[in-house]
Design a binder for these strands. Structure first.
Lengths: 187, 187
DNA sequence: CAGCATGTAGACAGACTTGTCTATCTATGG
DNA sequence: CCATAGATAGACAAGTCTGTCTACATGCTG
């Protein structure tokens, strides 16, 4: 591991630990041990555990949006493109590392007073809604701006439910059902 | 506080703390302080913090189902009865103490290995699905068993999304949108 | 090669965690 | 009233947490 990548390495290791075990149940000492770095190194890169949390959210989100975009782009010839959202989720669900929505997990764990983190999560969710809206508007069926925005929000809700509930129930039925509903509201 | 109610009192105090501040961020010492009891008293009633958690989930669920049933029973003359689910949620959302879904919060916080707690949450969610199914089947429109079950699951997903996302976004739009979708799928 | 930015090991501080335990007190019910 | 179940205050144990700090080492770049 070169020094140029130390920060990324820390975020990567912390991300895995946070996502699998939870933020509060992952201690600083575990991160440095897993990352094989000194504590001072960690604190050279991050002022606090909360900053690592923010880096975690940012990194996960960026990767997620990048992967989703690529998934979408590779399937641009299909009808009802937005349904790929659920196919994308199904692939994630089938991974052994799937542990639900990291944003929801963090949101459940952190104190209410951590407004910066909560605001970040909201922004990221809004970006997802915007992506969905973009996909919808790219389809043949023309809708008004208001319609598209409402539809995007509704599809977002379905997607979010599918993520959280497939994890909670340890089953894919929420994904399939959410997709079925999505087909209905697209008509 | 009479001794007959000590256990209930502990659960009540712990429930508020867990729901507002999170399970992991609420310590035993805080519970005994808030409940104004001795530590030995707490451990006389519960073998561990996990047992308090289970009592918390059971108590919250029981209260929730009781309240929901009452809410439903008081409105049995309306069409599309199942939509009251979202009205019920809106009332909860408007409470200052609203903090999302306690099951989801706990589910996000506890280690994967706590299979008993996860199983309990699943059972409780299944009870909610069953309730929704009962409501659906009581309506004029006749559906097959399979149809009712699928619809119940779909409405459940909408409800769950509405709870979690209204909390996350600190806004009621997820509730309204979920309700709109529900109207659509009921046709 | 040399200087310096960054990394190291790990001690330290102060706080907190969950659960165990003791001697004594108190509320309840017969 | 009396016996007992349950409550009390709080010490104790062993561990963990986050963040600070020191003296030294090492990798990188000019």
């Amino acid at each position: 591991m070169s020094r140029a990548n130390t920060r990324d390495h820390i975020v990567s290791v912390a991300s895995d630990l946070f996502y699998q075990n939870g933020f509060n149940l992952t201690g600083i000492n575990e991160i440095i041990k897993e990352a094989d770095i000194a504590k001072a190194t960690l604190y050279n890169h991050f002022a606090s555990k909360d900053e690592i949390c923010i880096a975690y959210l940012e990194t996960m989100h960026e990767q997620f949006m990048t992967d989703l975009q690529a998934f979408y782009t590779a399937r641009k010839s299909r009808k009802q493109q937005v349904l790929i959202l659920f196919d994308f989720l199904k692939l994630a669900f089938d991974q052994e590392t799937f542990n639900g929505c990291w944003c929801i997990n963090i949101h459940s764990e952190i104190p209410k007073e951590k407004l910066d983190i909560k605001a970040l999560i909201k922004r990221q969710k809004s970006e997802l809604i915007s992506f969905i809206e973009t996909v919808i508007r790219s389809e043949e069926k023309k809708r008004s701006v208001a319609e598209s925005q409402k539809l995007a929000k509704q599809i977002y809700l379905l997607y979010e439910a599918a993520v959280t509930e497939s994890h909670l129930h340890q089953d894919a039925w929420p994904i399939q059902n959410a997709k079925d509903i999505c087909k209905l509201i697209l008509k």
